[in-house]
């Protein structure tokens, strides 16, 4: 048993979308074991820090344990919203992909099971 460092891209599904100047990112673990690690590692603080310079408002995390899912709601994330922003990803469709860069520590035995 040993901790390994992994990017979320190897661990989860994720999809993002917009409402006004707010985006949400749904993050879905493949099983309860990985989900338990996500709950510890992918915190509001880490996500907010990860998106420093892109998300200006607060970040909230909601949990749906039955589906091993969590939902991050990030305000002030689109430079004013889809029809106002100068950003190229004006609808925030790629925020989920951006979050996949985040690295977390995970037990290799948990990884073996997923």
């Amino acid at each position: 048993m040993a901790l390994v460092r992994k990017q979320l891209r190897h661990l989860v599904q994720a999809r993002s979308g917009d409402k006004g100047n707010t985006i949400n990112i749904a993050v879905i673990a493949p099983n309860a074991e990985v989900y338990a690690v996500l709950l510890q590692e992918v915190t509001v603080e880490r996500v907010k820090a990860h998106f420093c310079g892109m998300v200006e408002g607060d970040v909230k995390r909601y949990e749906v344990p039955g589906l091993h899912a969590m939902n991050f709601v990030c305000r002030g994330a689109l430079g004013g919203g889809g029809s106002r922003t100068l950003r190229i990803d004006n609808l925030g469709k790629c925020y989920a992909a951006n979050l996949m860069r985040l690295e977390i520590d995970i037990d290799d035995t948990v990884l073996a099971g997923s």
């Binding site: 707010t22 879905i28 749906v64 589906l67």
Partner: peptide, 28 residues
Amino acid sequence: KEQLLYEIHDPSSYKTPDVMLDLTGVQL
């Protein structure tokens, strides 16, 4: 599952004009 939370904020109270939807007990 990937569409379930799309453009939703609080999954326990998704506000629509027809009903307040709570997704936290959904099974697929």
